[in-house]
Amino acid sequence: MSFLLNNIVELTVTGLVLGAVYGLVALGYTLVYGVLQLINFAHSEVWMYGSFAAVWVTVALGVAPGGPVLTAIGVLLLALLAAMTVSGGIALLLERVAYRRLLRLEAPKLVALISAIGASFFLAELMGLRDRVVDFFGLRDALDPFVRSARDNTRFLNPLETQGLFSIGRYTVSNVDVIIIVGAILMMVGLDQFIRRTRTGRGIRAVAQDSEAAALMGVNRDRVIRATFLVGGVMAGAAALLYLMRFGVTRWDAGFLLGVKAFTAAVLGGIGNVRGALLGGFVLGLAENYGSALVGSQWRDVVAFLLLVVILLFRPTGLLGESLGRARA
């Protein structure tokens, strides 16, 4: 207990950093659920592909840490753009291949769920076997730096050096901590405004409320669904870059655990609720860190999921409730 109290600042900051990443990934689950009442289990792979896109940008540019700050920012923005593009693209592809036809045929939700799980396995293994794919096309020499050790952790060559900014108690908050937490909150605010104020956002809310009525009012349901997947994917891409800045490596199967956690965060905050996703992420990140500090790291998931159960017992719809459709204009 005294350990927790002595290090409360450090545990809080690192918990919030992790929670911010959970929250951004959780958005993808929550948006799709809000619109389709479907859990997109392949979303973790959307995030994973984004993380590789960011890594590959740094590999292609041959980035070395400790360069001028402006270059570092340029590279990071480029990596962010790449991650968002790839994640958004994968999300759209998923919608096209794994969902659209099933939704048209009004297949049971369970079928779409299985389809998503299948897509998730396919995408993860494809990334894990990327060296073989490249070999197959005879491109190994050209692409070796991107595909070697395909099953191992791949390092993100972070162009920005971690630097302490200011101290709170015994912990020095670093620039990366600030970028991640502030970045996540900004993106969340932006998304919230997007859904509240734009035409597409209104379409998303309309379909979430009642897709048939929305269609009768002239909302193009297919377009709205695509937009939802795209937005979720772009957020996952941003989450991927923030994650890499903090944790430094990615792997073909890294999406799985993060996906489970992000999904938990979405449920915790109230699945279908955009603000709830970030709140759920922060609460989960903090719970994991505090839990680890109190009873040891091997209990972190126990603590986190116990919290989930307790919260759902008292608030079955999560902290903020399910409300994508009911958000006020």
Binding site: L11, T14, G15, V17, S292, Q298
Partner: peptide
């Protein structure tokens, strides 16, 4: 401290080490 295979965030463990 005990971590889990597959875990990627070790901040709580590192706090304890520090």
């Amino acid at each position: 401290d005990t971590i889990q295979t597959g875990q990627t965030d070790f901040s709580a463990t590192i706090t304890a080490i520090r």
